Simulated assay, not measured.
Amino acid sequence: MTTTPSFDPPAEVIAALQALDDLVIEVEVNSQDLHSIEAAVLKVEAAIDATVACYRGHPLIESTVAAIKAECRAGLYEQADATQAARNPGIGSNKPTLH
């Protein structure tokens, strides 16, 4: 009979993942100002880093942090694009136009 080895993460990894799951970050973004968007991204990334600072070094934590940061960055830019598109219909959209 073959048994599968257990790959339970260490307690500190579980604690870090729980801390990230519980993290709530509020930012304000001016969708017309790239500096505002980037400042929001930096604020989110700093909050994530601070949340897991004492848990850094484990590969699962590092990959999770990288994935969350990328997802947050993309989400902030997508939200800014959507807000901009709602304010200026037709500008910057990929819809074909008649000329």
Rank of each mutant, 00 (worst) to 15 (best):
T51Y: 02
R56N: 07
A74Q: 11
L20Q: 03
L34D: 10
I61N: 03
A85T: 12
I25L: 11
L98P: 01
T2F: 13
D49H: 12
K69A: 11
K43G: 00
N88K: 01
I37A: 02
D33C: 05
A86H: 08
N94W: 11
V44K: 01
T64K: 08
T4S: 15
L42P: 02
F7M: 09
G57E: 10
T83R: 04
L60Y: 05
D8S: 13
A39M: 03
R87G: 08
A46W: 04
I48T: 05
T83L: 06
L20V: 02
I48E: 00
A39L: 04
N88S: 08
S63P: 02
Q18S: 11
I48Q: 02
I68W: 03
L20C: 01
P59I: 04
N94C: 07
H35C: 03
R73W: 01
Y77F: 14
E45I: 02
S6G: 10
A53W: 05
H35R: 10
L23T: 00
D33Q: 10
T83K: 06
I68M: 12
L60Q: 10
E26C: 00
L60S: 06
S36L: 06
E71L: 10
Y55N: 00
N94V: 07
A74L: 10
A15H: 02
V29D: 03
Q32E: 13
G92C: 11
N88G: 01
E45G: 03
T51V: 07
V44G: 03
Y55K: 00
P9V: 06
K43I: 05
R73E: 13
T64Q: 08
V29E: 03
H35W: 00
A15I: 02
D81E: 14
K95M: 13
R56S: 08
S93L: 12
A39N: 07
V27P: 00
V29I: 12
F7P: 00
K95G: 04
V29S: 07
A46V: 04
T97L: 14
T3Y: 14
N94Q: 11
M1W: 11
A15E: 10
N30I: 02
I14W: 05
V41K: 03
I61S: 02
E26N: 08
N30A: 13
G75K: 12
H35G: 11
A74C: 07
E12D: 12
S6M: 09
P59G: 08
A19K: 03
A82T: 10
Q32K: 11
